[in-house]
């Protein structure tokens, strides 16, 4: 049970993100939903890379030469940076949308049909 705790947290985070995306009408909360969803996926990748008693792949001061392959960490770093860019871009869209529409409600939209 306790070993699976990180995976349960991943599922909870992704569900929360999807909940915000589906039911929150405030655009900023939608962006928060995307970020929470992204954090869930990141946590999943990190959790994949965990090995009990593993040694970080830093060659200086390493006690043994059998080390953990740092691929999931590298993937997570990339994904965090991309998530940051996405969130920053979307927040700047929201600022401009507020200037034009005077509202950040997702139901106030002009494109439909």
């Amino acid at each position: 049970m306790l070993n699976n705790l990180p995976f349960i947290v991943v599922v909870i985070l992704m569900a929360l993100g999807l909940y915000a995306l589906l039911f929150k009408r405030n655009l900023i909360k939608i962006v928060m939903g995307i970020h929470v969803l992204g954090s869930g996926v990141d946590l999943f990748l990190i959790e994949l890379g965990y090995r009990t008693g593993g040694i970080a792949p830093i060659f200086t001061m390493a006690p043994r030469l059998e080390m953990v392959l740092p691929t999931p960490q590298a993937l997570t770093l990339t994904s965090i940076v991309i998530n940051l860019a996405v969130v920053a871009l979307m927040l700047s869209f929201i600022i401009l949308i507020y200037q034009h529409y005077g509202s950040i409600d997702s139901k106030k939209r002009r494109l439909k049909g």
């Binding site: 995306l21 655009l27 939608i30 995307i34 969803l37 992204g38 996405v86 871009l89 979307m90 869209f93 929201i94 401009l96 949308i97 034009h100 529409y101 939209r109 002009r110 494109l111």
Partner: peptide, 16 residues
């Protein structure tokens, strides 16, 4: 404003 709205929708959809 419509262009911003379209870009926001596209970004939400494609980042998911």
């Amino acid at each position: 404003g419509e262009a911003l709205e379209a870009a926001f929708k596209y970004m939400v959809i494609s980042s998911i």
